[in-house]
């Protein structure tokens, strides 16, 4: 009996050593890969945003990296930026700033231990501060498992080649490719009957109530404060929206948005605001759907931002 238990204990110890060792090795590699990613290129501008920003072209702007990912809420952008600033000193941050970013819909994305946030930020220690101590306990295993088993091909790149690290555990980098010119009279690929439903899903809390994303707004302000501390300009960009979508946005949000814009630009000298919301108006060829520009539309906006 003793012999058996001893054997089991030895084996479990071996597993434990392996698990802890692998966890720490991965932590070390996260740091190295993050470091290599940011130090192996000149970075003057970092683009942070959600799906509206994903197609903004790095090639159109010099020394720029686009770290935008679909559905990223401001808290995720904040921790990404915080991590980037550990390794690099950009001069400008181009930040998504649309009506939907301040709606309660954005708060929902990271609430209730959202998988989205954990999946994207598990490699960044500082993001734990997003949660209370009891919440952290609940997600600890989830984060531990992700850190333990993260097969990241760029870890190999780091050791085996001089290539630039192409992606990070918290951000999948995609280089902008060549673009075909769109047809002049494009057709908006969206069912208009579903438009109201789509707008409602972005703005209406519990179907009819209107509610601001308090946490999102607080993290927007934190991003601005962080940039202020580091002497970085913040360019808030309201991306083009198709008029069919724009006209459905509740006035409540437009008013709150305008008031917030005014206070941010007057209170912070490092903040500038660029409004492209009606830039393409009804030019369908520049939209992939009513609230997202396509690659061609994004290229034009990228040149404008530059």
């Amino acid at each position: 009996m003793k012999k058996y238990i001893l054997k089991i204990v030895w084996f479990l110890l071996l597993v434990l050593i392996f698990v802890i060792g692998f966890y720490h090795l991965n932590n070390y590699l996260f740091d190295k890969v993050h470091h290599k990613f940011f130090t192996s290129r000149e970075i003057d501008t970092i683009i942070l945003g959600d799906s509206h920003f994903m197609h903004l072209s790095e090639n159109a702007m010099e020394n720029t990296i686009n770290m935008a990912q679909a559905a990223d809420p401001y808290p995720v952008m904040y921790f990404k930026l915080q991590e980037a600033l550990n390794y690099t000193s950009p001069k400008t941050i181009v930040l998504t700033y649309s009506y939907n970013n301040i709606a309660y819909f954005s708060d929902v994305k990271y609430n209730n231990f959202s998988e989205l946030v954990i999946n994207r930020l598990y490699s960044i220690e500082s993001f734990y501060s997003l949660y209370s101590r009891s919440q952290r306990k609940k997600i600890a295993l989830s984060i531990f498992m992700r850190k333990l088993f993260t097969p990241n091909i760029d870890f190999l790149n780091y050791f085996l080649s001089d290539k630039k690290v192409a992606s990070l555990p918290f951000y999948e980098y995609k280089a902008s490719g060549a673009l075909k010119k769109p047809k002049q009279k494009g057709k908006l690929n969206f069912d208009k009957s579903k438009l109201k439903e789509r707008v409602n899903s972005h703005y209406k809390y519990k179907k009819s109530e209107k509610k601001l994303g308090v946490v999102s707004i607080s993290y927007l302000k934190k991003i601005i404060a962080l940039c202020e501390e580091n002497d970085i300009k913040v360019m808030l960009v309201n991306m083009p929206l198709h008029s069919s979508y724009r006209n459905h946005i509740p006035k409540f949000y437009k008013n709150k948005y305008n008031a917030l814009t005014k206070s941010l630009t007057t209170e912070h000298s490092n903040v500038i605001f660029k409004d492209f919301s009606d830039f393409f108006d009804e030019r369908n060829e520049f939209f992939s759907d009513p609230d997202h520009v396509n690659k061609w539309g994004a290229l034009i906006i990228s040149k404008k931002i530059k």
Binding site: F11, L14, V15, F18, V19, L148
Partner: peptide, 8 residues
């Protein structure tokens, strides 16, 4: 050990 790691 390998089997255990995959199980974990």
């Amino acid at each position: 050990l390998v089997l255990s790691i995959f199980i974990i």
